[in-house]
Design a protein around this nucleic acid. Structure first.
Lengths: 134, 134
DNA sequence: AGCGATTTGTTCGTATGTATG
DNA sequence: CCATACATACGAACAAATCGC
């Protein structure tokens, strides 16, 4: 499973394992991951290393942590479709900490920034908003 | 500067400090941050905590790490503007590992996914692409 | 060419705090 | 009140890559 002597870091190997289980559906959306302590014992690695692996999946937006209930496979949010106004431009980037709190964004979710032709900008959570051009 | 007894975590306080220096231009694009050891000594905190703060800035796409040369303020890429086709939809999300390698994406950079009306999808690095509707 | 210093990466151990059940 | 589980923070050690002398 995990080879400490391998070239790839242990925490990346664990992240790969968990990511595979998520993308394959073995771990379905809403399902909890095993606890950090459980994973540490199961793979005979430290809890710090487990947390590094889970941290990786968090930045990828694959899991969310509901402290202290556990870590769960992220459930896709229903998306709202927004029309990109004429002459407007749209870009995507990671939110700042303040924007994360303001929009109650889970980790690993970008924001869509729309700048209209009059210069005003709006910020939308990318997990709940799609753009379209009719 | 940093108050260990404050409500906000120390590593977030340091991330805030560095982020302010970056957004204010005090730390210009391409400039190196002080080394982890230097920051740890300067603020009398552990290197682990410094790394947490820098990790935060990495996920926000504000800095990139060139190991072992140092950590640098990310230099904005020249952006290309793409017209969102009629009937198409656009979404943003974090790239998969494969997409990161394929597009040579640094950490903390989302992708723009454009789905045209015929169902084909294209993936664009969000640090180099903007959308527009003429 | 070599060698030491510097810097980031990884991993371990440990401890305390906080929220939930 | 107690057990569980995640958050934060400290310290330590070694590896790997780069740089300057």
């Amino acid at each position: 499973m995990i080879d400490p002597s391998a070239d790839r870091a242990v925490f990346r190997q664990l992240a790969d394992l968990l990511r595979d289980q998520i993308t394959s559906g073995d771990l379905a959306p809403g399902e909890p991951l095993p606890s950090e302590l459980r994973l540490a014992q199961e793979y005979a690695i430290s809890r710090t290393t487990v947390r590094q692996a889970i941290g990786q999946l968090r930045t990828e937006g694959l899991v969310t942590v509901d402290r202290p209930r556990g870590t769960f496979v992220r459930v896709p949010e229903p998306t709202e479709t927004i029309t990109l106004p004429r002459g407007a431009r749209a870009a995507a980037r990671m939110p700042t900490d303040a924007e994360r709190r303001h929009h109650r964004l889970p980790e690993g979710v970008p924001v869509l920034v729309i700048t209209t032709s009059d210069g005003t900008t709006t910020v939308h959570p990318a997990d709940r908003v799609q753009l379209t051009r009719p």
